[in-house]
Computed example of a mutant assay.
Amino acid sequence: MRCLALIPILLLSACYVDPYTHAPTPAPTDWYQAGWDDAMSGQPIRSNPVIAHLHNDENVDREEWLKGYADGQQRICDPNFLTVQGQNGKSFPASCETLPDVTDRRAVWEKASREGLQQSLMR
């Protein structure tokens, strides 16, 4: 009977794998996508040390990150997109603050934000 009790223990112990011996190697950071994501999440432009820390990668490709950021910024700061964000109660993205026509874009967002608030109060 004791032999039968040991069989499951032996079978289970044979399946143990040390999680640190087979750690996957991380893929290289897609700096364009990282910049796009930062802009689309409304983040301001970040310094290289901050970017490196956030992505756990010291080899920041600043040029690629800025390209992605600029493309994401163009998308999120589009007046139509800002209108939808304002109507839905989202805050004005900090990633739009560096644009030359930020005053006009903020006015579009504020108008939509007021309209969205009025509509929500009427419900």
Score class of each variant (00 low, 15 high):
residue 1 M to C: 07
residue 3 C to W: 15
residue 4 L to N: 07
residue 4 L to G: 09
residue 7 I to D: 04
residue 7 I to S: 02
residue 8 P to S: 06
residue 13 S to P: 11
residue 15 C to K: 09
residue 16 Y to M: 04
residue 17 V to T: 06
residue 18 D to P: 00
residue 19 P to F: 15
residue 19 P to Q: 12
residue 21 T to W: 10
residue 22 H to E: 11
residue 23 A to W: 13
residue 23 A to M: 15
residue 24 P to K: 13
residue 24 P to Q: 10
residue 24 P to W: 00
residue 25 T to R: 11
residue 25 T to K: 11
residue 31 W to I: 02
residue 32 Y to R: 13
residue 34 A to G: 01
residue 38 D to Y: 05
residue 39 A to G: 07
residue 40 M to W: 05
residue 42 G to T: 10
residue 43 Q to P: 01
residue 44 P to Y: 09
residue 46 R to P: 03
residue 48 N to T: 08
residue 50 V to A: 07
residue 51 I to P: 05
residue 52 A to P: 00
residue 53 H to F: 15
residue 54 L to F: 10
residue 57 D to A: 12
residue 57 D to W: 04
residue 59 N to A: 14
residue 61 D to I: 14
residue 62 R to T: 12
residue 65 W to T: 00
residue 73 Q to N: 12
residue 73 Q to H: 15
residue 75 R to N: 14
residue 76 I to L: 14
residue 77 C to I: 03
residue 80 N to L: 03
residue 80 N to Q: 15
residue 81 F to D: 02
residue 82 L to V: 00
residue 83 T to Q: 14
residue 88 N to M: 08
residue 89 G to T: 03
residue 90 K to W: 14
residue 94 A to Y: 13
residue 94 A to K: 15
residue 95 S to H: 05
residue 100 P to L: 03
residue 101 D to Q: 14
residue 102 V to I: 14
residue 107 A to V: 02
residue 108 V to R: 00
residue 109 W to I: 04
residue 110 E to C: 06
residue 113 S to C: 03
residue 114 R to T: 02
residue 116 G to Q: 00
residue 116 G to N: 04
residue 118 Q to I: 01
residue 119 Q to P: 03
residue 119 Q to F: 04
residue 122 M to C: 09
residue 123 R to Q: 09
